[in-house]
Design a protein around this nucleic acid. Structure first.
Length: 427
RNA sequence: GUGGCCGUAGCUCACCAGGUAGAGCACCGGAUUGUGACUCCGGAGGUAGCGGGUUCAAGACCCGUCGGCCACCCCA
């Protein structure tokens, strides 16, 4: 193995897997278009301050997972670890928030973490953000959009929806204080991670995987008790809308999101088919972020989905039929035959733009070229040799029909090539 | 950052109480004239991740290091 290898956690996607990616991306784009969302293309690098101010200074992402470096002017830049911050920045900067905006983007994100199943250092997200609507019908639309996407992807059976309301910042702080008070009394019974989080990020203790910790939490205060009335009624309305639309969900009171900017509604689509990485898509409301980043106060909701995880799920489901790479393989032996084949192949492409034709390159015997034709998966081989050149003809051979004794092939004048080919492909 | 497992041909793996490597697949060529698939024959391809140690002798044992996978943490 060469010493020049890809960076840890940054992988290559080979053509076979890329087919799955194309299917995913195509489907995502189609569903978003069906709801009137517009694509926005954003830089991969932003000023470091943007992420510190939006994601939160004390989060793991900002503290230890960002790819940050100084550019030649000495300004601190960061490879985006998530998309919302950049999208909000762009929306403010471009002045497009005077009216509601529905936006989406797709692309690579970067987080310096230990790679594992469903987690890469360069990973890909599709982000969807809706600005300017404060009411929970907007939250519902986003969730319905997801549900439709899962249906189109054939993933409905492997994901489920969890929702929660985490209220405004004041309610969360009050709850956090109450939770810390309560847990401090049981501190020595908590698992080690949770003890640490008691000081760093108490809300995160809620989704601790420790059974003892969860048992302790059962006796503690709940976030719900601290929610203001508006959060309550909005959440109830969201549930009502989801019920009416027939979207199943479970309310998970322990669901909190890792990024500081969320408020009110949060939701996650989770799966049990991806090992430790259960979350496939997650988001929520972030009504304060636009103003926090210097824009006019603008309500917003959004979510991001992890494309690697969705591709893994698709693979798991065997959801994508494997497409043959080419329809026709062109074999040519001899310098003159190669010329005739090249010209004829170009003409066929001109007249049949949808046809996938691969011409053999690099020479070789009929035998070796035919082997390549077979391997290519093509249904038809077009063959040129001395005889065809002399007769101004081409041999058309079916690679999928016929027997060893009587291969289905015929030599036809060049003028009849198109009709012969079309008949074969159509059959 | 922490832990477990792993690192032998392009790929998937084997061998071995420690004595300088093998299979399957893939690849290339052949089985009489210009033709694939199945079959048969032949061929090419590895400084056994890297460095050090133990030993007469190490891919096999020990240490370190790098890399991979999975999990923790965290998150999409």
């Amino acid at each position: 193995m060469s010493e020049v290898t890809a960076i840890r956690g940054m992988r290559d996607i080979l053509p076979e897997e890329a087919l799955r990616w194309q299917f995913l991306e195509r489907t995502v784009a189609a569903v978003l278009a069906a709801y009137g969302y517009g694509e926005i293309r954003l830089p991969v690098v932003e000023k470091t301050a943007l992420f510190k101010r939006s994601i939160g200074e004390i989060t793991d992402i900002v503290e230890k997972e960002m790819y940050t470096f100084d550019d030649r002017n000495g300004d601190s830049m960061t490879l985006r670890p998530e998309g919302t911050a950049g999208c909000v920045r762009a929306a403010i900067q471009q002045g497009i928030l005077s009216t509601p905006q529905r936006l989406w983007y797709m692309g690579p994100m970067f987080r310096y973490e230990r790679p594992q199943k469903g987690r890469q250092r360069q990973f890909h997200q599709t982000g969807v953000e809706a600005f300017g609507v404060a009411t929970p019908d907007m939250d519902a639309e986003l969730i319905l959009l997801c549900a439709r996407l899962w249906r189109r992807l054939g993933l409905t059976d492997c994901v489920e929806l969890q929702i929660n309301s985490i209220g405004n910042a004041r309610a969360r702080k009050a709850y956090r204080d109450a939770l810390v008070d309560y847990l401090q009394a049981h501190a020595d019974a908590l698992d080690a991670d949770s003890q640490r989080r008691l000081h760093s990020n108490p809300l995160r203790i809620l989704d601790s995987k420790s059974a003892e910790t969860q048992a302790i939490l059962d006796g503690g205060p709940t976030l719900e008790e601290f929610l203001d009335e508006e959060a309550d009624t909005d959440f109830a309305r969201l549930c009502e809308l989801l019920n009416a639309a027939g979207v199943a969900y479970t309310v998970n009171q322990r669901l909190v999101r890792g990024l500081d900017y969320y408020n009110k509604t949060v939701f996650e689509w989770v799966t049990d088919k991806l090992g430790a990485q259960g979350t496939v898509c997650a988001g929520g409301r972030y009504d304060g972020l636009v103003q926090q980043l210097g824009g006019k106060s603008t309500p917003a909701v959004g979510f991001a989905m992890g494309m690697e995880r969705l591709v893994l799920l698709l693979a798991e489901q065997g959801a994508v039929a494997e497409a043959a790479t080419v329809d026709v393989y062109v074999v040519a032996v001899g310098a003159d035959a190669e010329v005739m084949a090249l010209v004829a192949t170009e003409r066929i492409r001109e007249e049949n733009p949808q046809l996938r034709i691969m011409q053999h390159m690099g020479g070789g015997s009929f035998k070796s070229q035919m082997k390549k034709a077979d391997k290519s998966g093509a249904r038809v081989a077009l063959i040129w040799g001395e005889n065809e050149v002399a007769a101004h003809a081409v041999t058309v051979k079916s690679l999928r029909e016929g027997t060893v004794e009587g291969p289905a092939q015929s030599t036809v004048p060049l003028i009849e090539l198109d009709s012969t080919l079309c008949a074969l492909i159509a059959s």
